[in-house]
Design a protein around this nucleic acid. Structure first.
Length: 308
DNA sequence: AAGACGAAAGTGGTTGA
DNA sequence: TCAACAACTTTCGTCTT
């Protein structure tokens, strides 16, 4: 029984919580993300049932998109009785078959290659299984619609992954995707927009709060600081400080302020680095937060405390 | 000396004519 | 298709701790 309970390696607390959706285990005492490689054992196809659009509803046995062929191949006229046809139409059938063969093997080859790449990048970023599945699905659709033509396979893979991350609210920044896949950030952004538009995938704008746990963990900030920063984000949203702004910048600024308030000062540089924005952006957001949310007093309070 | 601050100029993307 | 525009970055000089 004893080793059934996991302890937080940072503070020794046993108050660990598992965020299934994000595949992260975090400590509620100190905020450390203990294990973010956790595999989601949930039945991911169920997630589609709760999606609002009924386009996504599937029936029948669960399929996996990380295998390149889901056993749904199509063949042209294999079962038709060709002896009843003759001449031209028979030739036509043969030609069609040949094309069908060429196309399907080309797609399969492409998928086999691409899904290998996809798995590599996904595991590098420690993405949960559900996201990997989703991105594989997106990629498969993209190939079938011929959206890869004129683009590199890798960039479409990266774009699909980015889209899947956004949909599952486990945002990774474009920079992280770029680093993991070796594709230029701009290129990923372009293919991401292209693919989502062509496939009609709607993406909700990412929520700054989704970035907080990861950033906070990287900066080794406590759970109080983390939850305070989320409160700040909520206030900021009410004050309409968030629309039109980059979500990472806002998350970073909220975290920075919150750290100041809790006497866990980090430099703007440090916060900027983990969030992938510049100090200037943090400064701008920070200034806005102070102006609108009257947080100066609290910061001064903790500064005074620290002098004693 | 390091960090915070702010100004100015440049970049890439969106929007609207 | 082009120009205006907002957000963000880069760079750099100055102020604060």
């Amino acid at each position: 029984m004893a080793d059934y309970v996991k302890k937080c390696p940072e503070c020794g607390g046993i108050n660990l919580s598992w965020n299934k959706e994000k595949g992260e285990v975090s400590c509620k005492d100190c905020g450390l993300v203990v294990e973010d490689r956790m595999i989601d054992f949930g039945q991911e196809w169920r997630e589609f049932d709760s999606e609002s659009g009924d386009k996504r509803r599937r029936s029948g046995a669960p399929m996996t998109y990380t295998q390149y062929d889901q056993g749904l191949g199509t063949e042209v006229g294999m079962k038709a009785d060709l002896s009843r046809l003759s001449g031209k139409s028979r030739n036509k059938i043969f030609r069609l078959r040949k094309w069908q063969y060429r196309i399907s093997t080309a797609i399969e080859r492409n998928l086999k290659l691409a899904l290998g790449e996809l798995k590599r990048v996904a595991s590098y970023l420690k993405l949960p299984r559900s996201v990997e599945e989703e991105s594989a699905r997106v990629y498969t659709l993209a190939v079938q619609r011929g959206l890869v033509r004129g683009r590199s396979m890798e960039s479409v893979v990266a774009g699909a992954l980015y889209a899947a991350c956004r949909r599952h609210e486990v945002p990774r920044t474009l920079d992280e995707l770029a680093e993991a896949s070796g594709i230029d950030k701009k290129e990923i952004g372009r293919t991401y927009r292209f693919v989502t538009r062509e496939l009609g995938i709607s993406i909700l704008p990412s929520n700054p709060a989704d970035y907080i746990p990861r950033f906070a963990s990287a900066l080794k900030l406590t759970a109080e600081t983390q939850s305070r920063s989320i409160e700040i984000l909520e206030q900021a949203q009410k004050a309409e400080l968030t629309s039109g702004r980059g979500p990472t910048g806002i998350a970073a600024a909220a975290l920075y302020v919150s750290a100041l308030i809790h006497g866990e000062k980090r430099t703007q540089r440090e916060v900027a680095d983990v969030a992938g924005v510049t100090e200037v952006t943090i400064r701008n957001r920070y200034k806005e937060l102070l102006e609108k949310l009257k947080l100066e007093r609290e910061i001064k309070k903790t500064k005074k405390k620290q002098r004693d």
